[in-house]
Design a protein around this nucleic acid. Structure first.
Lengths: 221, 221
DNA sequence: GAGTGGTCTAGACCACATA
DNA sequence: ATGTGGTCTAGACCACTCC
């Protein structure tokens, strides 16, 4: 079903922009139930290959916005998965008022104090990731974890599961301080991941992950 | 259904790592058909929230590998979508033997000649993206397009639809040549997307897209 | 108003991993 | 051997949107 649809698109039986038969017609043609057709076409639409609208029908996407699904793993597991030894060092932990950019991103009133963590993640003893995190102290509860022993990332995963949020990817030149900590030249191109998360309406954390040169995120399309 | 499952996970009724009831049990509890439960749980599993195995049942993921879905739009539409004027300049077009790294990525015999395109994409007249592309000349067919008029990206989308491939994201310091073309300082941090695509077994293209500083890819998680 | 996709029900059989 | 999820059928009703 799914493969036959893709074959027809690639063979240009169904050209980009053109409408394809209705679910009912395809169900008849392939001799399957409509629910089966629906699932196949719905999944292809989610991948950006088809565009579907009630009443208007299904078309082959003209300017397919390809969807790439990235896995965002826990740093420790990513490093260990490469067969390297994982290391983690908490560099600083204090309670402070965040810069306005961070406060507004989290939707916090000016003047609210957050927990500020700076940490370094290492692979085979070499620094590979500099973490700069602002954390809502409310989420810690009474059993405040020891962030020397467990990274905030892993603690949050098991204690504040399944947050929503946004994530951004960009490139930045290493500042002098970043260069020193990551043991790279000042100005080196770092791969930066910015992430802000909420649990419902409650802001949880805002983190900047600066990856040392050589880092590459990869996926299939 | 879906929301109730997420609520129970967030409320820690179902803790990370713990098994949740079977599809049949949940269908009974919620008073819905098993197919409905199946769809909800299957989708949550695809997002990395749950882990499902036949016979073993469904568990709340312990180390959820969060899946972020990135949209990879056509450059022109991305720029126009920001309300900017799109510009495109083909800088070079020749037929050449690709460097070994490119040839091996595409799985080509050494010595095969490819079409080599270099192009600049502009937003409001300012260069924002440098494209360096190797293209299998077989795909052009008899009606070789004029790559001065249409970008290879757009031509490929409508003429070789729905390819598979891989895509990688990284950061790189601008070389002298890149800096000159993008009108940035040498060494500036560029956001680089590498993409290799096939149509079935046939290699199509291998492209490096170097984005000028300021570029940011963003999505919700 | 009418045609399309979106979603659901109730039931069935199957594939697979585990015990 | 058994219990779980994976997928399917056949039918129904609904929601949206285009005409």
């Amino acid at each position: 079903m799914r493969e036959e649809v893709l074959r027809r698109i690639r063979a240009r039986d169904w050209a980009p922009g053109a409408a394809i038969p209705t679910e009912e017609a395809l169900a008849g043609e392939f001799g399957v139930a409509r629910a089966t057709v629906n699932r196949a076409l719905r999944e292809l639409a989610e991948e950006g290959v088809l565009e579907r609208r009630r009443k208007a029908g299904t078309r082959v996407a003209l300017h397919p916005v390809r969807k790439a699904t990235l896995d965002i793993p826990v740093t420790r597991l990513e490093i260990e998965g490469r067969g390297q030894r994982y290391g983690y060092r908490l560099l600083a932990e204090d309670r402070d008022e965040p810069p306005p950019a961070i406060a507004s991103r989290l939707g916090l009133a000016k003047g609210a104090a957050l927990l500020h963590l700076t940490a370094l993640h290492l692979a085979d003893g070499r620094p590979v990731l500099l973490e700069d995190r602002w954390l809502n102290p409310e989420v810690l509860g009474r059993a405040a974890p020891d962030f020397h022993a467990v990274s905030a990332n892993e603690w949050l995963l098991t204690h504040v599961p399944y947050t929503t949020g946004d994530i951004g990817f960009s490139a930045a030149n290493a500042s002098a301080a970043e260069a020193r900590l990551l043991e790279v030249a000042e100005g080196a191109a770092l791969f930066v991941i910015d992430r802000t998360t909420w649990e419902g309406e409650r802001p949880i954390t805002c983190v900047r992950l600066a990856h040392a040169p050589g880092y590459r995120m990869q996926t299939m399309v």
